[in-house]
Amino acid sequence: MQLNSQVNVQAAQSEIRQQGRTRLANFLNSDDLSALCREVDAINQWNLVSRLQGRHLDLDAQAMQGISSAQRQEFYRRLAEEPGFTYLFENYPIYDKWHSGALKATTPQLAKVFTLLNSAPVLQLMRELLDAPDIGFADAQLTRYRAGHFLDKHDDAVEGKSRVAAYVLSLSHGWQPQWGGALEFYHPDGSVSERFLPQLNTLSLFAVPVPHAVTRVKADIQAHRLSITGWFRCGEDPGP
């Protein structure tokens, strides 16, 4: 798997320097993208991730689909009352599975994407775009936002993680603005400065820290907001 040679590096570099973010359209070659999307559509083991009582939760997404209506209502009630930063979406832990040795055997196309993100050409591109020569690796997760899923406003700054920039590689086909699921950026006063809608095979890249969120997917939407997300980080990969 290789980076699409038609990516407009010069324009992206200018946008990063002026605005702290950019979008790289047609990030993957079309054949690689098609194989990747077929594999992602076949994945049936997802985590439902959230934050309750001040701690991160990894739940079995399929099992959560089978809980009673009363249990589901109680879960959402507690989530709505949770103070501070909260979120709700599904993920497939690419980075952890890579380090456990399971990724290539179970999802070889995702393994190829992870290898590409950590390849010398991509890491060098990110060092140049972000003016960050210390970038040493990328982590990754596959995310799926279904109806009602969201990610509250935050800035990605976590002590010890050495995050230089966040990225979101969209795998969503035909996503519509009215569905929600937009990546929003904010001014210091809390107003929206820019909104990125999911666009197939586009890599959104933005410097850390910057306030951003993923708006709630509307309750009646059947489509899934799919993307590979993570951070380009400094130093050597410490493992999960």
Rank of each mutant, 00 (worst) to 15 (best):
N91P: 05
Q199V: 10
A207K: 13
S227E: 04
R55G: 05
F196R: 13
G174F: 05
D31M: 07
G101I: 11
E82P: 04
A223I: 02
I16V: 15
N91C: 12
E128K: 14
P133K: 04
S68R: 00
A63V: 00
Q62F: 03
P188E: 11
R144A: 15
P93H: 05
T86P: 00
S100T: 10
Y145H: 14
Q71A: 14
F137N: 08
L36K: 02
F150N: 05
A182P: 03
L59C: 03
G20H: 03
L226H: 02
S227Y: 04
D41V: 01
L28N: 05
Q109G: 00
G136S: 12
D32G: 11
M64H: 08
Y186M: 09
T22G: 12
Q141H: 08
S34A: 15
R72M: 13
A12M: 04
R233W: 09
L169W: 09
D134Y: 06
S172C: 13
R38H: 12
F232A: 10
E128A: 14
R72Y: 06
Y145I: 07
N4P: 03
H99A: 09
Q45W: 00
A182N: 12
H56D: 13
Q178E: 15
V164W: 04
H187E: 12
A105D: 14
A213D: 12
W179N: 08
L205R: 03
D155A: 13
I43T: 02
P188R: 04
L169H: 07
Q199G: 06
F85P: 05
D41N: 13
H187F: 09
W98C: 09
L151W: 11
A140L: 10
P188C: 07
I228N: 04
T215W: 03
D152F: 04
S119R: 07
A157T: 03
A165G: 06
I43M: 06
P188M: 04
A132Y: 09
E81Q: 15
A157I: 01
T115V: 01
T143P: 04
Q73L: 12
R127F: 07
A70G: 01
Y95H: 14
D41E: 15
Y167C: 05
M1H: 06
G230M: 12
N44L: 02
A111C: 09
E74Y: 01
Y87L: 14
L205H: 08
N118T: 11
I67W: 00
Q53A: 15
D237R: 09
L171F: 10
S172R: 02
L52Q: 14
A25M: 05
Y167K: 09
K218M: 11
Q13N: 02
S30D: 14
G160L: 08
Q2E: 11
T143R: 01
A35I: 00
S30R: 11
A111N: 10
T107D: 00
G180K: 06
D156R: 08
L197F: 13
P211C: 10
Y167W: 07
I221K: 05
S5H: 10
G136K: 15
I228M: 05
F27L: 03
D155S: 14
H224Q: 13
Q178P: 01
A42M: 10
I135S: 06
P133T: 12
N29W: 02
G84C: 08
A213T: 08
Q199R: 15
A213V: 07
